Amino acid sequence: MSQEGRRTGRDETDDERADRMWVELIQEVRVAQTGVQILFGFLLTVAFQPKYADLVPTDQVIYIVTVVLGACATGALIGPVSLHRLVSGRRVKPQAVRLASRMTLVGLALLLATMTSSLLLILRVATHGYVPWLVVAVVAWYLTCWYILPLWARRAYSRGSGD
Rank of each mutant, 00 (worst) to 15 (best):
43 L>I: 09
63 Y>N: 00
116 T>K: 04
58 T>D: 09
149 L>E: 08
134 L>Q: 07
126 A>W: 05
40 F>Y: 14
105 L>E: 12
91 R>T: 09
75 G>A: 09
47 A>H: 03
144 T>N: 13
88 S>H: 12
87 V>K: 05
48 F>W: 06
108 L>N: 05
9 G>W: 07
108 L>I: 15
13 T>Q: 07
64 I>P: 00
25 L>M: 12
46 V>I: 15
43 L>A: 03
30 R>Y: 01
95 Q>G: 03
58 T>H: 07
17 R>Q: 10
112 L>Y: 03
146 W>I: 14
103 M>E: 04
144 T>L: 15
31 V>N: 06
1 M>N: 11
14 D>T: 13
93 K>R: 15
2 S>Q: 09
111 L>S: 15
114 T>K: 02
152 W>C: 07
33 Q>M: 12
76 A>V: 12
104 T>P: 03
87 V>I: 11
129 G>V: 01
104 T>C: 05
36 V>I: 15
41 G>D: 02
43 L>D: 02
103 M>G: 00
128 H>M: 04
3 Q>A: 09
19 D>V: 09
97 V>H: 03
150 P>D: 10
94 P>M: 04
61 V>T: 15
20 R>P: 01
65 V>E: 04
87 V>T: 15
80 P>R: 01
58 T>I: 14
30 R>P: 00
4 E>M: 10
50 P>C: 07
160 G>P: 06
65 V>W: 02
62 I>C: 00
76 A>M: 14
14 D>F: 06
111 L>I: 06
102 R>D: 03
10 R>E: 13
68 V>S: 05
97 V>S: 01
26 I>C: 05
